[in-house]
Design a binder for these strands. Structure first.
Lengths: 304, 304
DNA sequence: ATCGCTGATACGGTTTTGGCATCTGCATCG
DNA sequence: CGATGCAGATGCCAAAACCGTATCAGCGAT
């Protein structure tokens, strides 16, 4: 088994075509055909089904594909890490962040980070919380920024708290719900929930925390863009981090709702796979995230 | 980067000598020297420091070694799994088990499993609970058998309950502590604890469960062998699963202590990485573990 | 029926690879 | 203090592996 042939399989599976895969790899189509056959001979199993309109992986092909991708990622990460040890900060860094963090922390942290390490290829994925942890485990993302959950198993991840925020309800400017004084007044409002069916969003938690029943869901969305669209154009109510609701460009469209109850406190932090804690870039990124958190907190206090 | 050169590095790091590594790989020493140099050229970093009495990895070498081992493991596992899909049950299976499970479940499950799949190379590691999860995550073990913790993060692992047991106190035959009638009587006894300083063992939990303060630790051990040695030769008291204390070969040396309080209930189960749930051998092993659990429960009931 | 797409095959030249013999440096032991 | 043994490095040569070009064969759509 050679790395080149595995790369061939990966390309073939992802492209669904030998010729396209050959183009991506940078070799001729016959060479690719040979590589795949070599793999199939070595493992004594069919990996791809060939048809007149491309190739499709068999069950065995999918298994090998999954693991080959993981193996390749290990080696790429090794090369990056080694370069960093040598003093050159190069390589890729894949940041996962929940929507909240994407708006709050990431832009500010990125601003200083990319200036310090221009050779690092940054990639940012906005994902919901559950998807984040999954991607963190498979190694698809290197670091996750989001609300720190209570039930995180100790030992698996290294967690670094960054800032404390509060989720407060907000609605479109001019909405009748802005007049609400207590959470109970909002129980009849149409709410926008985030999350999945299985994992309740923050809004539900806020109601339960105050001993109220969570209102029937008005809408369940999986992206903050959708949430903001609904809130700013419809008559929905949704939970947003205090800093965003108050001081961002959203302020001209959306207003926080002043309630007698406090909002839902939320600890935002970075979650890193334990074994990556020592990687130089990751350490630096954490520093910049801390700076961003302080920056935001200061702005918050000045405003208050 | 080629797999052959990575294998060369792995061998060189593990053997600490180019010539020994060459022997293991099955090539000549000059060939190995060239491979290492090729890697170092490609990564532009020194990987090994050569001395007159062998080679030692640099920091970069260690990084590459770690990740290369992981990558190789992925590919080996892929090959095994593919063979299994094809119907041939071959390959390796690395089982991690806490001491309790090693004594209770593993022997019985192995007995039937190895008859059914003689071509699977089984490997069993006795490890304490915390070490188990770590090894499960890195992929060093494929399945872990042990007490199911309460705080396991959902989603990361697939958990399969196997049997329910009870941890009861036991002491050497003839020990004066055998006369104890309640847990309180044992508060002055010297206890053998398992676990680490950070993670309390089961014994401590039993006391706290009954509203008593856990006695000063007599000894803290990290292996059941040590625990049994202490109990059977000294005058210690320790917590053992009921089935072991009652019916194993230990019965001639160790007796359970009949207390008025019930023991500490414990759910024993198998923990598998989610992505491995579908691997054929793992599924089969789970079946055999279930059979072993039933077997043990039946014997337990007959005895009672 | 034919054209355009797919993957498969045959062959020849280039590159790479590995082994053998040999060289050099260091530590140890007599 | 020098001989000896073991460590890794180097040069050379033959064998093997590899890749690209040209070509073929099946299937679908036009």
């Amino acid at each position: 088994m050679k790395l080149a042939t595995l790369a061939a399989l990966i390309a073939a599976v992802e492209e669904g075509s030998m010729r396209a895969a050959a183009r991506r790899i940078g070799c001729s189509q016959p060479a690719l055909t040979r590589m795949i056959r070599e793999l199939e001979l070595e493992l004594a199993a069919p990996l791809l089904v060939r048809s007149s309109r491309g190739v499709l992986p068999t069950a065995q092909g999918r298994v090998l594909y999954e693991r080959a991708v993981r193996a390749r990622h290990e080696l790429e990460a090794a090369a990056d890490e080694i370069s960093q040890i040598g003093g050159h900060m190069v390589g890729k860094l894949h940041i996962g962040a929940v929507p909240l963090a994407v708006m709050l922390l990431i832009p500010e942290a990125m601003r200083t980070f990319v200036r310090a390490f221009p050779q690092i290829q940054l990639r940012i994925s906005e994902e919901l919380y559950v998807a984040q942890l999954q991607k963190l485990r498979t190694g698809e993302v290197d670091i996750t920024v989001g609300g720190i959950p209570d039930d995180l198993a100790a030992g698996e991840f290294y967690v670094e708290p960054l800032l404390h925020t509060e989720m407060i309800p907000a609605a479109r400017k001019g909405s009748r719900w802005l007049d609400a004084c207590s959470l109970q007044d909002l129980q009849q409002a149409p709410w926008v929930y985030t999350g999945t069916e299985h994992r309740a969003g923050y809004a539900r938690a806020l109601f339960e925390r105050n001993g109220l029943e969570a209102p029937q869901q008005g809408a369940l969305v999986n992206s903050t863009l959708a949430l903001l669209s609904l809130v700013s154009t419809g008559d929905y109510v949704a939970l947003l981090p205090r800093q965003i609701a108050r001081q961002s460009w959203l302020a001209s469209y959306i207003s926080p709702i002043a309630l007698s109850e406090p909002g839902l406190p939320l600890q935002v932090g970075a979650i890193v796979r334990q074994e990556l804690t020592l990687a130089p870039v990751v350490r630096h990124l954490l520093t910049h995230l801390h700076r961003a958190a302080h920056h935001i907190n200061r702005g918050d206090m000045l405003l208050a």
